[in-house]
Design a protein around this nucleic acid. Structure first.
Ligand SMILES: [Mn+2]
Ligand SMILES: [Mn+2]
Ligand SMILES: [Zn+2]
Ligand SMILES: [Zn+2]
Lengths: 140, 140
DNA sequence: TCGTATGTGAGAATGATTCCCATGAGCACG
DNA sequence: CGTGCTCATGGGAATCATTCTCACATACGA
């Protein structure tokens, strides 16, 4: 039922690059693409190769330290988030993100799956909208 | 709140290619990628250019006649589906798909959005699992 | 039937992600 | 502290889905 990735054996080796990626993610609010993160790191001076940014992000996702979200245009976006299962409320305009953890939707997903004989179930839930700040701004 | 796309003016022009795409989708069960559909059309003889397949799919999505789903590897998958709002229960193994429409999850999404001051809300919900048939097969 | 706005197709262009591989650097051990 | 082995890095090439270009075809209203 649960997968911990990281094949087996030894721990992951420490590196300036991985720290830089995780540190940056800690300071940011919304979801950011790998390309964005790479550019931000370059600006700030903690330059990291693009391929390495992708590897670091994948590793962090496998470790359950990041959430991935696929934007409608196909780009993957990453965000540091709490380790327990939850979902997101994302502002389409500014990317502001609120983590939402509510039992109802969990029970709902489990129930519909069971009703149709599905097992080994996971669910993917995201709510998109315009946050209060952006709504007010646009209203201007 | 609702968007009908199709800019304005005249109706969409009829064409053999668009009919072929829609007809094929009508005969298929699960979600299929544009590349898959293009290959299937070519096999069956109703050959259609790849770019045209993409254009037809996009048009059908805009018309609300298809649902799009983005697989974890980034490929978009399309499926003919009922016009009213609903969600999907998809088998990871065989692609079999069940449409699910339940008020609870709709209310849930609306409520969490409202609680955080978000407006103009949409939600994206998919449940993945192994269907009964595939589970039995794997069991051997 | 004509004229014209639209649709089509082949191939080029784009852009994100992954691969390759020579080089660099953790870290366990002495 | 060195040394060595293994894993990590980076940059450029390769992949691959999707979009763009543009010359040509065609639906369809008049
Ligand atoms: Mn999160
Ligand atoms: Mn559907
Ligand atoms: Zn916002
Ligand atoms: Zn199945």
């Amino acid at each position: 039922m649960s997968v911990t990735e990281q094949p087996e054996g030894g721990a992951r080796r420490q590196s300036r690059q991985r720290s830089a990626v995780l540190t940056l993610l800690d300071e940011l609010d919304g979801f950011r693409s790998a390309q964005d993160l790479h550019a931000l790191l370059r600006e700030r001076g903690d330059s990291v190769g693009l391929a390495t940014v992708y590897r670091a992000l994948q590793a962090l996702v496998d470790d359950g330290q990041l959430d991935v979200l696929r934007s409608p245009d196909g780009e993957a976006a990453y965000r540091r988030c709490s380790p327990s299962h939850h979902h997101h409320l994302v502002c389409r305009s500014c990317g502001r993100t609120v983590e939402v953890a509510d039992p109802p939707v969990e029970r709902w997903a489990a129930r519909v799956a069971a009703e149709h004989g599905f097992v080994d179930v996971q669910h993917d839930v995201e709510v998109f909208g315009t946050c209060a700040v952006c709504a007010a701004t646009r209203q201007g």
